[in-house]
Amino acid sequence: MTQARIELIKTRLNEVLQATQVEVIDDSHLHEGHASAGGAGHFRVTVVSDQFQDKKMLERHRLVYQALDDIMNTEIHALSIKAYTDAELASAS
């Protein structure tokens, strides 16, 4: 189930945000027994997309949430997001 969810998240971010890099880490084990999660997972994503260009962090996170809108709450309980453009990633490394 974990792997299927990771693939689903990756596919969405690639398609909707034309991401050049997507990394998804499943942190669900950190929240085992967390009743309010209702079986949905807890993920950490790093997304690199030029659609983030000139957008504030708030807007970038909204774009990520929107790309995953229909699976938020069903497949995803919590999402930790890092969002960069290609240029930012290049200058950071």
Binding site: M57, L58, H61, R62, Y65, D69, M72, N73, A78, L79, S80, I81, K82
Partner: peptide, 20 residues
């Protein structure tokens, strides 16, 4: 237009969730 908690507001405006 933000699906998760927590949410932090400054002067009535959302600044972001936990990560931001």
């Amino acid at each position: 237009n933000w699906p998760t908690f927590p949410q932090v507001y400054v002067n009535g405006e959302l600044i972001g969730g936990c990560d931001i």
